[in-house]
């Protein structure tokens, strides 16, 4: 493997073996899940739109490592990774992708619309940028109740150009809402490269006008994401108001399954995979630090493969929703 630009493990103090193994496992679970989802889409078992998270795993796994019970999260339609990272059941997620009764929304939401009250996962939103004020609203509720929970509101570099994001920055700062705005900058808004859509590239500085602290972080390095996340979460819990994290990341697959991705070269994608892959990074740390053997990691791979196969099987065998479900859940 080519040398990587990210800092070596020695720069990150106090990372335990258990932690590294946990991140490896969680990121691998997301990747294998998404690969399987891509496969099931190819077989026609998943319909409509399906946006895969492959390549971006370190962002959500690093941030989830900073969350505590009661913290909330909300994101866009590229949401499978966020659900798995906050502990939602892969079977229920995959069965929602196939539109089955056993899915988190009983088959009525699909890839883009899943929720879990139990895990404080608030979707799964299909309109670019809409989750940003919604996320600030979740934080508003925590502040109203007077607890110290925080909300992670994830959005992309594309959504960062929506007006409602800045309306939200203003109110979140004005009212000191405990929300971490996580910009997952994967460098492409669907097929439009950031340099073609965005007048100033440093999105994390866009809170400056509102007095919101922001920082950029290497989104391909789970330890760096976690460290930045801890700073952001600490500020929010301390009542200092919102925080912006711009995670520089990359998606390996197209915007959705039907994206031929002709707006970037194959070499560009391959270079990221070879040199910056977040999972390979942790794998290397584990092996070079003698925290784990090849066999240890193979055992994890096998475990995850079994979980994914079980989820896939469940998503095929769970029945389609009963016709009566058409009329339920319109109102309470």
């Amino acid at each position: 493997m080519a040398s990587r630009k990210t800092a070596a493990a020695s720069d990150k103090p106090n990372i335990s073996r258990e932690e590294l193994l946990k991140y490896y496992r969680e990121m691998l679970l997301i990747r294998r899940f998404e690969e399987k989802a891509g496969q099931l889409y190819g077989m026609g078992l998943i319909g409509g739109f399906c946006h895969l998270y492959i390549g971006q795993e370190a962002v959500v796994v690093g941030l989830e490592a900073t969350a505590k019970e009661g913290d909330k999260r909300i994101t866009s339609y590229r949401d499978h990774g966020h659900m798995l990272a906050c502990g939602m059941d892969p079977k229920g997620v995959m069965a929602e992708l196939t539109g089955r009764e056993g899915g988190y929304s009983g088959g009525k939401g699909g890839s883009m619309h899943m929720f879990s009250k139990e895990k404080h996962f608030y979707g799964g939103h299909g309109i670019v940028g809409a989750q940003v004020p919604l996320g600030a609203g979740l934080a508003f509720a925590d502040k109203y109740r007077g607890n110290d929970n925080v909300t992670f509101a994830y959005f992309g570099d594309g959504a960062a150009n929506q007006g409602q994001v800045y309306e939200t920055f203003n109110m979140a700062a004005l009212w000191r809402l405990p929300v971490v705005f996580v910009i997952e900058n994967n460098q492409y808004a669907m097929g439009t490269a950031q340099r073609r859509s965005t007048s100033s590239p440093d999105i994390h500085t866009r809170g400056t006008a509102f007095g919101i602290k922001g920082e950029a972080v290497d989104g391909m390095d789970v330890l760096a994401v976690k460290a930045a996340g801890e700073r952001a979460v600490a500020a929010c819990r301390a009542g200092k108001g919102p925080y912006i994290l711009e995670a520089m990341t990359y998606r390996y697959r197209g915007h959705s399954m039907s994206d031929p991705a002709k707006y970037r070269s194959r070499e560009e994608v391959q270079k990221m995979r070879d040199e910056r892959d977040a999972i390979e990074h942790v794998r290397e740390l584990l092996l070079t630090g003698a925290h784990a053997t090849d066999d240890d990691l193979k055992a994890i791979d096998r475990d995850i493969k079994a979980i994914i196969n079980e989820a896939a099987e469940f998503s095929k065998t769970s029945p389609e929703p009963d016709a009566s479900a058409l009329w339920t859940d319109v109102t309470v």
Partner: peptide, 20 residues
């Protein structure tokens, strides 16, 4: 609120998701 209907409506809706 500031004069910012799109934003404050989203915030209010989000707070309702969270039970307010």
């Amino acid at each position: 609120t500031p004069i910012t209907e799109h934003g404050f409506t989203g915030i209010a809706v989000g707070s309702a998701f969270a039970g307010l």
